[in-house]
Design a protein around this nucleic acid. Structure first.
Length: 116
DNA sequence: ACCATGACTATAA
DNA sequence: CTTATAGCCATGG
C-alpha cells in the first residue's frame, strides 16, 4: 500500500522534533530515513510553522548552508536561533556541520556533545 | 492535464 | 571553487 503523503509530512515533523538541541540535520538524511525525496522534506518544513513546535532552524542542506533562512520571519532569525543553541554560523553556513550533523540511524540519543 | 517552481542532492565538467 | 544537468515529487496556476 502506498504511504499517505500527509503521513509523510507528519513523519518529517516527528523526526525534526527529535533533533537534539545544539545539533543540526540535513534534508537528505531525513528524506532517506523516511523513504522520500529531499524536496518533500523542504516542502513539509515550509508548512511546519503552523505547528509551532517544529525546530525547523535545525534543518539545513547537505553543505550546512542555511538555505531556508528566507522562509523565517526574518532572514536572520534562523541564524540567531542556531547561535542561541551554541551552533556557530558563519556566512550562512554551519561551522563544523559534519560534526554537528545528527543522524537518527546511527545516533539515537544521549550522544556526546558536539565537542567543538 | 500540462507547465513552472521549489527550505534538495548527486554527479559531471 | 563554480556551473550545468538530471532526478526527485508536492503544490499552484
Amino acid at each position: 500500500m502506498k504511504p499517505d503523503r500527509a503521513a509523510f509530512f507528519d513523519q518529517v515533523y516527528s523526526v525534526v522534533r527529535q533533533i537534539p538541541r545544539g545539533r543540526v540535520c540535513s534534508y537528505g538524511i531525513i528524506a532517506r530515513l523516511l523513504g522520500g525525496s529531499p524536496r518533500l522534506v523542504g516542502y513539509a518544513l515550509n508548512h511546519s510553522h503552523v505547528y509551532g513546535d517544529v525546530p525547523a532552524h535545525r534543518v539545513v542542506n547537505r553543505n550546512g548552508l542555511l538555505t531556508g533562512k528566507y522562509h523565517f520571519a526574518t532572514p536572520n532569525r534562523m541564524r540567531e536561533l542556531l547561535e542561541a543553541e551554541g551552533v556557530e554560523v558563519v556566512e550562512d553556513r554551519v561551522v563544523r556541520f559534519e560534526s554537528l550533523c545528527w543522524d537518527p540511524l546511527s545516533e539515537i540519543d544521549s550522544e556526546p556533545p558536539p565537542a567543538r
